[in-house]
Design a protein around this nucleic acid. Structure first.
Lengths: 249, 249
DNA sequence: TTAAATATTGCAAATAAATGCGATTTCAGC
DNA sequence: GCTGAAATCGCATTTATTTGCAATATTTAA
């Protein structure tokens, strides 16, 4: 029997029975336990099973990964969004875009805030569903899969009917001349609509987004009311933005 | 029994019952209490549970982590939904309700299926966003927070405009006289709308839902085309359902 | 085809892990 | 602070794994 055959047998057995036992395999395959262990080690190394003391088990589901959202530079983001918490008040109608910065923001929204929040981001909606006092409306539409947000005409339509007090908008890129810009066309359109529907527009982003540019325009700097970064508002890198009239938090 | 299996058992028990008792586990697993304690210590150390005097409990923050979805009796559900996979075909327009059974279904939908899927469940939408060939539309509306689904007039309105080939509908309860019934009024309304919009109605559920009843009616048995349980279609417990004309898979 | 290089396998000894038991300590609740 | 239940500790036993090594088998290149 070929080694490959043997390993196939082991994997089949594993799928059938959810586990394999070293000693059983050894006698079933009529090879020594050492050989079986070596096979198990190889398969484990190839991530085809998980070797455990006494045998092997199925690899713990990898498809649940969708729900395992990784937040880059979480500490920095916490610093940013904490500043923005002061902008929240009871009774507000709020629109939130997607992105992990907004997700961190959502996590830190105080338990007792009573507000209505619209979002088209699935992750943000899931996070906010933890807040008992928030009236949460998820804006539906076609899913933009990688970003876990809805996009398209349906989203625009809903947004056009809202009148919000404030919106929190993530940013791919910002610079003095073009203002906010986005990688994707569809997202840029949705963000435009968000801005249209909001009395006050707040954008939160890390300072490395400053003075960068993406293909699709969202809005001028003049349409932003407040920007929030991890920098001190007096930082020289923000000077030009302050001068342009936007409030720097 | 492998140590890994045992620890899995403990974790499952924990998610199901929110706590585990050392002595109970010892007798259920037929090992000494010391072994159980050692397992609990390991799991505690891996932050998979919190060991307390007398047993273990869910980790306080983990249990409120919205993104950590626990699927009860996953194996049973896999068995159910695997049967239903045969109902899928390229080009279909599909509506899916929420629930963990449908979530398991979503996970098992083949990579290469080309279809349009409508859902108002955030978890299902997130799961399906893994599938490159599925056109995914999330139906927006007010969030029903505990279930992670949208509900209300907006959902009904969108559903009323769809014409789907097939819908997959979870079930809280089913019995011969009242048909499908639900715990919540709002969800029952949404499910009614789903059924209205679909040519074919499929309900998947575990056999323990058979012959139970909840306050809010969804539909008669006659409106269901197919039901899928983990039982053999010939099982005597399904006999009356078969006789009523519904197809039992 | 043959010889050297390489890979696979089984064995034995050494090592490590898992488990249960008794003695002792800690804990929760009165 | 007392008491019984639960946890910890140390230890012995069992069981599984690792490692080095030698015997085969398989591949590679001349």
């Amino acid at each position: 029997m070929l080694k490959a055959e043997r390993q196939n047998y082991i994997l089949n057995k594993l799928f059938e029975e959810k586990k394999v036992i070293t000693t059983n395999l050894a006698s079933a395959l009529d090879v020594s336990e050492d050989t079986v262990r070596r096979d198990l080690n190889e398969l484990d190394h190839k991530k085809l099973l998980k070797k455990v003391y006494g045998g092997g088990i199925l690899i713990p589901e990898k498809s649940v990964d969708v729900f395992n959202i990784h937040i880059n530079a979480e500490e920095q983001k916490k610093k940013i969004v904490t500043k923005a918490l002061t902008l929240l008040h009871d009774g507000q109608v709020i629109i939130m875009s997607g992105g992990t910065t907004n997700l961190v923001f959502a996590k830190l929204i105080p338990e007792d805030l009573q507000a209505t929040i619209y979002t088209y981001s699935l992750t943000i909606a899931m996070q906010l569903s933890q807040h008992p006092n928030i009236d949460l409306i998820l804006i539906g539409g076609k899913m933009q899969k990688n970003a876990m947000v809805t996009i398209g005409i349906d989203v625009i339509q809903v947004l056009s009917k809202i009148k919000a007090d404030i919106c929190f908008i993530g940013a791919s890129s910002i610079n003095l001349k073009q203002g906010l810009t986005e990688t994707g066309y569809e997202v840029s359109i949705v963000k435009k609509a968000m801005i249209e529907s909001s009395d006050r527009v707040v954008s939160m982003f890390a300072s490395n987004k400053l003075n960068t540019k993406m293909p699709h325009s969202v809005c001028d700097l003049s349409q932003l009311d407040t920007i929030v970064t991890e920098l001190d508002p007096d930082d020289y890198r923000l000077e030009d933005y302050r001068k342009s009239g936007v409030f720097v938090l």
